[in-house]
Design a protein around this nucleic acid. Structure first.
Lengths: 152, 152
DNA sequence: ATTGCTGCAAAACGTTTGCACCTAT
DNA sequence: ATAGGTGCAAACGTTTTGCAGCAAT
């Protein structure tokens, strides 16, 4: 078995909504949790196809949406018009710094950042739901950056 | 004439790079500065077509990129995989709260938010270039929200 | 004269949809 | 039995690209 705890969370999420418990959805869950780092829906679909899975593209997209709804995955957006996901299971929440030279993504957790969305929403008369905070920056030592030097 | 000051900024930006000064680019500049609020590249292209402009889609996309490079426009991303722009000319920079009920976009400026990207980048060994901070929230008084009530 | 820019159309890309069949409930 | 899910392929909307002709330098 892959990850019983996450599977249990997903199972009860499905039960509580009017969503059916299907083997394909658990295949997607397992593949998503196994994926290292951030991935697009299509990345995951292609990986699963390579591994001879029979799930369809539509099912992958649909299931990732569900996995976000039950907080097993977090949805990210790094400004390149691709929706990315990452495992949110047993991880503290965090934000991202994206290097514009090399594309590296660095995760950080900052207490001040976390407090702000609620504070600001309250001031504006809204109830906060979520937020996204991305920093775009450059590595100080470009010559030592293996990513930068491997780029076309 | 439309906006001499912005045109002058663009003109000197073009000169300093190896970019040519073409009438089409200034047509896009004027249309972009006139646009109220946030717009996608295609929105602007369609608007310009309606106004009988002869600029091509490729030129609009290309020029918006240039206008962002010289800070006349700011590029935004509200999590829906569409690149949006807004005039950045003579405006204080600000961030956005997006209402997930009604789609309204509220701009706000918060001193704490502005300080954080540099602070965090420094800690991580990077030089900050830009950042994006979006809050997704709900209006408190849904019944009074005209946007929400006009939705399908 | 050179190089970059243009318009156009086609292609690319990630994502969504329509449909007939299937399956968990 | 029935609502919901599936795979497949086609459609979608945004963005990028290839190319021949054009125009700013």
């Amino acid at each position: 078995m892959k990850n019983e705890q996450a599977e249990e969370i997903f199972r009860s999420f499905l039960k509580n909504g009017k969503n059916r418990n299907t083997p394909e959805r658990f295949e997607v869950l397992d593949a998503a949790l196994e994926y290292e780092g951030h991935f697009g829906a299509d990345d995951l679909f292609i990986l699963m196809k390579k591994q001879k899975s029979r799930v369809s593209r539509a099912t992958v997209y649909n299931t990732l949406e569900l996995l976000e709804q039950c907080d097993l995955l977090a949805k990210r957006n790094f400004g390149d018009n691709i929706t990315r996901y990452e495992s949110n299971f047993k991880k503290q929440n965090h934000d991202h710094l994206i290097c514009i030279d090399c594309g590296r993504i660095v995760e950080f957790a900052n207490a001040k950042v976390k407090k702000l969305p609620e504070e600001i929403s309250k001031d504006l008369g809204f109830i906060v739901s979520s937020y996204s905070f991305n920093i775009f920056a450059r590595c100080k030592h470009i010559k030592t950056c293996k990513y930068y030097n491997s780029k076309k």
